[in-house]
């Protein structure tokens, strides 16, 4: 029943991309590896994001599901996909709250489809929580140590 998976564009509350919202039903990670035409996939917390790496070129949307916000495996999945060069839409779906937004953004998510719509004002503030950051991540922000020493983010290979 792959065709019922996935969020619709209407569910996407926040998006940081200029391209068209992907409107394909997502398939499971297993199906994605078997089906050569799938362009959208949904990762569950127990899935290994790395099995998708051979297919990144044809994927326009990867949804990462957070059945419970306390299960942080999706943060690693997202970062791994961006580290591997995925440039499509990376959508956080499920139990996504105000207080997860800033970290999710840092891990490479650029679209958010929370189960419960979030207060827009609170969310805007949450995205802007950190004027600067300590860690280097896939958002390529210049880190505090880099600012201190006048160096630029290292290009990731």
């Amino acid at each position: 029943m792959d065709n019922v998976l996935g969020t619709s564009p209407d569910d996407v509350q926040f998006r940081f991309r200029d391209d068209e919202v992907v409107d394909h039903a997502a398939v499971t990670v297993d199906s994605c590896c078997d089906q050569t035409n799938a362009t959208a996939v949904r990762i569950e917390p127990g899935d290994d994001a790395r099995v998708l790496l051979p297919f990144l070129d044809r994927l326009a949307l990867i949804e990462v599901n957070f059945p419970s916000f306390g299960d942080g495996r999706g943060y690693s999945s997202a970062r791994i996909l961006r580290e591997a060069g995925f440039t499509g839409e990376l959508r956080a779906v499920g139990d996504v709250g105000i207080d997860q937004l800033s970290h999710m953004r840092r891990c490479g998510f650029d679209a958010f489809a929370p189960d419960k719509p979030l207060n827009e004002e609170d969310a805007t503030r949450a995205f802007a929580t950190w004027e600067n950051v300590y860690q280097a991540s896939v958002d390529n922000r210049r880190t505090i140590p880099q600012i201190r020493h006048g160096v630029n983010p290292k290009a990731r290979s």
């Binding site: 916000f69 299960d71 942080g72 970062r79 997860q100 999710m104």
Partner: peptide, 13 residues
């Protein structure tokens, strides 16, 4: 300490 403060990936271990 700095690296582990507000680490984006490791806040919901």
């Amino acid at each position: 300490r700095q690296w582990s403060s507000f680490h984006p990936e490791f806040t919901y271990l």
